[in-house]
Write a protein that binds this DNA or RNA. Sequence first.
DNA 1: TGTACATCAGTGAACGCGCGTTCACTGATGTAC
DNA 2: TGTACATCAGTGAACGCGCGTTCACTGATGTAC
Lengths: 191, 191
Amino acid sequence: MGHSQAAKAGSRERILAAAAQQIREGGLDAVSVGSLMKSVNLTHGGFYGHFESRSELIAQALQRALVDSQTAAKPFVDRDRPRTFAGMVKQYLSAGHRDRRGNGCAIAALASDVGRADERSRAIMEEHIARFMEKVGGLLEDESGDSAIVAMSAMIGALALSRAMTDTKRADEVLNTVRNYLVEHFGPDET
Amino acid sequence: MGHSQAAKAGSRERILAAAAQQIREGGLDAVSVGSLMKSVNLTHGGFYGHFESRSELIAQALQRALVDSQTAAKPFVDRDRPRTFAGMVKQYLSAGHRDRRGNGCAIAALASDVGRADERSRAIMEEHIARFMEKVGGLLEDESGDSAIVAMSAMIGALALSRAMTDTKRADEVLNTVRNYLVEHFGPDET
DNA sequence: TGTACATCAGTGAACGCGCGTTCACTGATGTAC
DNA sequence: TGTACATCAGTGAACGCGCGTTCACTGATGTAC
């Protein structure tokens, strides 16, 4: 064995990153202490050297999942040559995004779960929803922010519906229809 | 004790109805055999006289939740004097609907859970999504059905976002903004 | 730089608990006469 | 209609299992000299 202090920080990081991905994939209840620790090649007992409790881990993993997926989306809103609203919507409402939950938008993945969770989780989620809305709003011309609210609602709903379907054709149709609508009605620029 | 055959059907019905409501409130994982049976004043052992397994119950309760919430929505689409699209949207995107999950739309409540569930559950959900889209489409003038897809996505997303928030004002704003947008842009009639 | 010791990251057995499921049992219901 | 018996809806103890959590222990790391 033998484990340096520096290694500890790395372990914590791996645990948290794994938890964040796993809750994006399977929801807030999908992570158990035992399976999580095993997934980063540690034993369950060591968990409590890093986190006070499972519920503390879940709160931090939720925050982490939201930050991670926001970071992944950054190229669409922050770069020197910023992407357009249309570009963002196309990516968000793609089959790829729908099918790779573990790396996808944590708001869409977890909004429903968090709606049933404690106030702390909802506060964390709310902050990230507001942040995302601002970013979407920044790509739009509507300064009231109303368009961002409508567009974001439609995107999250479409993703949830598409993920709940078995028929790929129908699932794709939902994404495409909402994508086309948003690009046409909200996009400040064409394409 | 002593239990007639007629009573058995009644028991099954109560178990299923309770399960359907509980999964609308807490998601597909929220129902345990023990607590469910206790909630209808029976003991856990009797459960297997009614259902083959917990997973069989969940599938039937999902179906039931979807049927129940569709029935509850019927006044908006089926009555002699049918409600308008605007009327339906106002009800759907109301604070009351958001706050009373147990009696609300099961598609919105469970779409996200079902997205991670087995194919059987997704097939059940898909059928009800299609049915609901048709009904919404029937209230709209757009014969392609595209408007129904967009409207439904926006409604489900708005409900999910609103439920995930702690700040009531912000949560209400999401509902109101999407509601106003849909009524204005999709409603075939005014108000 | 080399040795002696304290620290502490991670291990793995053990805990109490609730889970889904099984099953021997109870006693009112429903039937045969 | 009244009695005897089979049925079977519901009971509750018991099962194996995985959960979150605790804790005595191990041995490399980091420090004091």
